[in-house]
Computed example of a mutant assay.
Amino acid sequence: MRWYTSNELRIGLHKKGKFVHRRFWLHDVPRLMLWCRLRGHRPVVDGHGPIAKGLHAARWVVCDRCGVRPDPQGNLDPEQWDIGQPYDGPWTPLTRDLAASAWTELLGLTQRPVHRDDARKPGRWPDKPTGTLGAELVLGKTFGVFSAEVTIGCAGDEHPISCHLRLWPFGALYLHTEAFGAWLQRRLIPDGYYSRVINISVDEWTIRWQWWAREDEWAREDPWWMHGRISLDLVEKLFGPKRYSYETVNGPTLGLVHMPDGDSHQVQLVLQRRRYGRPRRKRAAWSWVVKWTANSPGIETRPGKSGILSSAVEVPADTVQTGAWATLACGLIAHKLTADRIRNGYRPATTGQAE
């Protein structure tokens, strides 16, 4: 095992009110995996992406109990293997696997040699799987008043389990695991791209909670119990809560969104003046946004899911004055949706077509 620590106060960021801010990592911690050591691993197929022509997909082998992958993990054909399907072979023969490991270590190779007959097969299970434990300690003033949270990461999250406890003005403690907790992760979130959060916090005279909610995500169809808040703010009681309101100034007008993947999409643009403030108070913050609407089935950003039909981007005031807001809005739409595609591992089936 080896450990590492860093003093965040030396970096010079957000030092005010803090007298301790340090991060800790404990690497190469042996994983117990008692059940797998007694009964053996339970190999299943894991991966991402739908089985559809032109859409990116990948399949590999993993232990359904402990989350350990063989080395190499395998590169299975997505058209023949479904996610969650038990895997019973074929495997890389033990003799060739040992020979590849020996040649890699002897010659100091950066890439493991693979026999042509074993290009897609998984190898041996690691003998001594390890993981990492991490922590962050803050003593002094932090943001918010109180917060307690537990997060279960999705299959692609490098932190299967993370949690924190924060109390102003005393400090905060953050904990996370890497590899540890994979069994719980695979039981609770076997698929999907979103981690799940259980949280209760107090900030800005408001008590908020999340119960098994998607991390950094909210949808209108979420059940009522998943998100909630109780306001203790007297100003809010008198003048109302801060809200966004919109006034249409220009449009609708047509625009063309050119994606870096080669596909293009025609959208309808509407320029709006946005107000953020309390309804019974004159003081407010103003900005410009462009609401856009695409033709059905929308602009796809996730494998196997329907495309995005409508959203909005914010544009600076000088582009409104010069009349360049529509051109900039199309570029911002392409930038945002491209980031979503990269995050979701999506590639379009066709390119160079305007929809």
Rank of each mutant, 00 (worst) to 15 (best):
G131E: 04
L38K: 13
R112E: 01
N75R: 15
S264E: 13
C154E: 12
R243C: 07
G331R: 02
P113K: 02
W205N: 13
P50L: 05
A182G: 13
K53D: 14
P297F: 07
L13N: 13
W292V: 05
R229L: 08
L98T: 04
G140K: 00
G307Y: 03
S296D: 13
V20D: 06
G131L: 03
K15I: 10
D216M: 03
A155G: 11
H176P: 01
D77P: 11
E217T: 11
E314G: 14
Q272V: 13
R275W: 08
E204T: 08
R281H: 15
G304Q: 07
P43Y: 02
D157Q: 05
G240H: 10
T319Q: 12
W103G: 03
T322D: 11
W168F: 15
P113W: 04
P241A: 15
T253W: 10
L13E: 15
V313F: 09
G67I: 05
F239V: 12
L26V: 11
N344L: 09
T177I: 10
A100S: 11
L167H: 08
A312K: 11
R23A: 15
T142M: 09
R187I: 12
T293L: 11
S245M: 09
V197K: 03
K18M: 04
S6E: 15
R120H: 11
R124C: 04
R42I: 08
G153K: 00
M226I: 04
I51F: 06
I230A: 10
N7R: 10
W325Y: 06
D97P: 06
N7T: 11
T177A: 10
Y87G: 03
R120T: 09
D28C: 00
R281L: 15
D261Q: 14
A294I: 02
K16Y: 13
T130C: 11
P90L: 05
W25S: 12
G331P: 02
V290M: 04
Q272P: 07
I230S: 04
W292G: 01
T132G: 03
D191T: 13
R302Q: 09
P70E: 02
A219G: 05
E79L: 05
K128W: 12
Q73L: 05
I299K: 00
D222S: 10
K305D: 09
W325R: 08
P43C: 08
W81I: 02
G251Y: 09
W218F: 12
C63L: 06
P113N: 11
T338L: 06
H21C: 02
T350I: 08
D77G: 06
V313C: 09
T206E: 14
G153D: 01
L34Q: 15
K18T: 01
P260F: 03
S310Y: 02
I161E: 01
G171R: 03
P122E: 00
G240V: 12
G54K: 03
D127T: 05
V44Q: 02
P78C: 10
R243V: 10
V150F: 15
R124S: 09
